[in-house]
């Protein structure tokens, strides 16, 4: 009897320290943000309750809509280009190509760099006068194509997204390579026997089997797009004229440069609400796996 009771509280003893830490520093703050978004707060004095005023202002703020639109661009690029590229590379490198190891390492090497470092190196490559890209264009006689990649309002967002894609493709490739390990080679052989060509085998056998990976990759890509901050902060701070502003950067500037923390909290709540849909899809996927146990 006594032994049973000891066993009943054992898991809680293991959980108590990490769980308290997690509740105080992660779950609690998440909930508290909702409250802060209903207040006026400069970061020093106590927040004062103002109801939905921050949201009313937010929906009239043009910078909010520019940022939102840029996040949508980011998401759309992220769920198409790196995913296709990563999948293609994974399929190609899953075969025994000479040097496959080197190729793989090359593609995921950007992942070990911090986004700050990526942002700095690419800022230099984009540099209007001395940068590699413009120098190259001038060198091959296409000087007219040389641009101020980070100072042109129409180009800057794409220039930053390209850096993010450069870093992301290798990650997607790694995930698909792991997924391909789980594809039974007999199924592929069987489809070949049935007369499928390579494309048909991919389309009808391999790709459907990779669906779980694809779901995870897309969810991760969307969440990563929504929390994108470092590259924009290092490369442009959202400029010129907010043309490369994204929600995370907009939120940071409102909080720590303009000391409008209540307003900033409202932006973060919007980021959260958009993410919540995808976090839910992710949890639902994990739950399906759980049911298999």
């Amino acid at each position: 009897m006594k032994n049973n009771r000891v066993k009943n509280i054992t898991p809680y003893l293991f959980l108590i320290v990490p769980l308290i830490l997690y509740l105080i520093w992660v779950i609690g703050p998440m909930i508290y943000t909702f409250y802060l978004s209903l207040t006026k707060w400069d970061g020093l004095s106590a927040p004062t309750f103002v109801g939905l005023r921050n949201y009313e202002r937010l929906f009239r703020d043009p910078v909010f809509f520019i940022s939102l639109k840029n996040n949508v661009k980011w998401i759309l690029s992220f769920i198409t280009i790196p995913v296709t590229l990563g999948l293609g590379l994974a399929i190609a490198l899953n075969h025994s190509i000479p040097g496959a190891k080197f190729f793989k390492a090359s593609f995921y090497s950007p992942l070990v760099l911090s986004l700050v470092v990526c942002g700095l190196i690419w800022s230099w490559m984009y540099h209007p006068a001395g940068g590699l890209i413009n120098s190259f264009l001038r060198g091959i006689g296409l000087g007219s194509l040389a641009k101020g990649w980070l100072s042109d309002e129409n180009l800057v967002m794409w220039a930053i997204i390209l850096v993010a894609i450069w870093r992301q493709a290798g990650y997607v490739m790694v995930l698909y390579l792991a997924g391909l390990q789980g594809v039974d080679p007999q199924l592929i052989d069987a489809s070949k026997v049935d007369g499928c060509n390579s494309w048909q085998t991919f389309r009808n056998v391999i790709f459907p089997l990779l669906t779980p990976v694809t779901v995870i990759v897309i969810v991760i890509s969307i969440i990563d797009s929504l929390r994108a901050f470092d590259l924009v902060s290092v490369m442009t701070r959202g400029g010129p004229y907010n043309s490369s502003s994204v929600l995370a950067n907009f939120m940071y500037i409102e909080a720590f440069n303009n000391y409008k923390m209540g307003y900033s909290a409202a932006i973060s709540v919007i980021i959260f609400l958009i993410s919540a849909v995808f976090i839910f899809i992710y949890l639902w996927r994990i739950m399906q796996d759980e049911m298999e146990y």
Binding site: I27, P29, L36, M251, L283
Partner: peptide
């Protein structure tokens, strides 16, 4: 189960949601 999902869900949280409360804390 609930705790497990609390942990898993937290991994996907956008950092921005935590930023100001954690700053205040």
């Amino acid at each position: 189960r609930l705790l497990f999902f609390l942990y898993v869900g937290g991994t996907m949280l956008p950092f921005q949601v935590l930023m100001l409360p954690v700053f205040r804390l």
